[in-house]
Structure formats: C-alpha cells, structure tokens
Simulated scan of single mutants.
Amino acid sequence: MATGDAESRYEEESDEGFEPLSAEQAREWRTRNPPLSLWRVLAIQVVAGAATTLLTWSVAGAQGGWSAAWGVLAVVLPAALFARGLSRATTGSAGGALAALFVWEGAKLLLTLALLGLAVKVLGSVNWLALLAGFVVTLKVYWLALWWLAARRGRHG
C-alpha cells in the first residue's frame, strides 16, 4: 500500500460523523464554555503561597518565613509575567500563538531561575527546606486551582 493511500484513508475515516459548527453554534459554545482565567489561577497560587509562608513562619521562625516567601515569589512573579504576556499576545495564527507561548514560557523559566539564584544574595541566610516548601506548594497548587475553577464553573454556569 502506498503512503498516499494510507493518508487518504485516514482522512476519510477521521472525517466520518464530523459536522463543523455554524457560526451561531460556535458563538453559543463559546458563551457556555468561557476560558478559565489565568489571573484567577494566579490569585489562588498567591493565597496558597501566603498560607504556606505563614505556616512556615510559625514553625521555622523568621528565617524560614522569609525563605518560604522567596520561594512563593519565585513562582508568582514569573507566573504573573507569563499571564500578562499571554493575555497581551494578539496573534492571528496558531503558529503565532504557539510562538508567544514558547517565548513567555522561556521568560518565565529564566526569571524563576534568576530569582532562585538571587535568594542567597537577597536573604543572606536561606532555609532551603522552607524555600522549597513555598516554591513547590505554590507551583503545584495550580492543578487544584484549575480543577476547583472548572468544577465551580460547571455548578454555576
């Protein structure tokens, strides 16, 4: 079987039963399914990071609290830059949107690494376990934030 035959057969099979939405149906679908806000996810990360910082401060003292806060900052500040960059990116093509995603993700990664690298210089003495706790909790809570926001939207919308 030639490669062209396999490709055309795949295209035929994948198009079976597919009906494109009309402009009105697409508009209605977008109204029922608005995108989740990056800013709301970021706000939940800030709240989780603040709670982690307060808990760490109460357990490990001021040095632990400042270290945890720096870990939170190393997640929240780059995430805010990323959200702002993506919300401002206006591209007319899928390729442009993908390029913007890669550029802002790269900027986020570089800023995160720079902030982690500056921890000793800014804080002096660092409680690395506390910094790691603030960093990891804040970084990973976005999964819960996305789940909670999606579930909440499902109940109310």
Rank of each mutant, 00 (worst) to 15 (best):
A51F: 12
A145W: 09
K108F: 07
G65I: 00
A69I: 04
A79G: 04
A99E: 03
E28D: 05
Y142L: 15
Y10R: 13
T112C: 05
V103N: 06
V126W: 03
S14R: 15
T91E: 10
L144W: 14
L98V: 01
A89P: 09
V76T: 05
G49T: 05
W57L: 15
A150I: 13
A119Q: 01
S37Q: 12
G95Q: 05
A130S: 15
W39N: 06
R152I: 08
A119L: 02
T31I: 13
K121G: 03
G154A: 15
A62E: 09
P20G: 04
A74T: 04
L139D: 15
R40P: 04
L73M: 03
L118R: 04
K140R: 12
A74I: 02
A83S: 14
G154P: 08
S93F: 07
T138W: 07
P35W: 03
L113H: 05
A114L: 14
W66P: 00
R32E: 10
A69H: 01
T112I: 03
W143S: 11
G4V: 14
L144I: 13
F102P: 00
Q45N: 10
V59N: 10
R153A: 11
H156W: 11
A68S: 02
T31Y: 12
T53P: 00
E19C: 06
W29G: 02
G64W: 00
A2I: 10
S67D: 06
L42T: 12
F82W: 08
L111A: 07
G157E: 08
L36A: 06
V41A: 08
W66I: 01
H156M: 11
L113A: 09
L98G: 01
A48G: 08
T53S: 05
L146K: 12
P34N: 02
R153N: 09
E11S: 11
S8P: 00
R32T: 06
V122Q: 03
V126I: 07
A80Q: 07
V46R: 09
H156R: 15
W70I: 00
F102D: 00
L98S: 01
W57I: 06
R40G: 10
A62C: 06
A79Q: 04
E105H: 02
A89Y: 03
L118Y: 02
A100K: 00
A43S: 11
G106M: 06
T138R: 11
G92T: 03
A145M: 09
L86Y: 00
A99N: 06
V122S: 03
A100Y: 00
A100T: 00
L77Q: 03
V141L: 07
V75S: 02
A62V: 10
L144E: 05
G61Y: 10
L55M: 11
L101K: 04
L116H: 05
S67T: 02
L139H: 15
A130L: 10
N127G: 12
G61K: 08
G61W: 09
V122C: 03
E13F: 11
A26N: 09
L109S: 11
A23L: 05
W39C: 05
W143T: 10
L110F: 15
D5Y: 13
G65N: 02
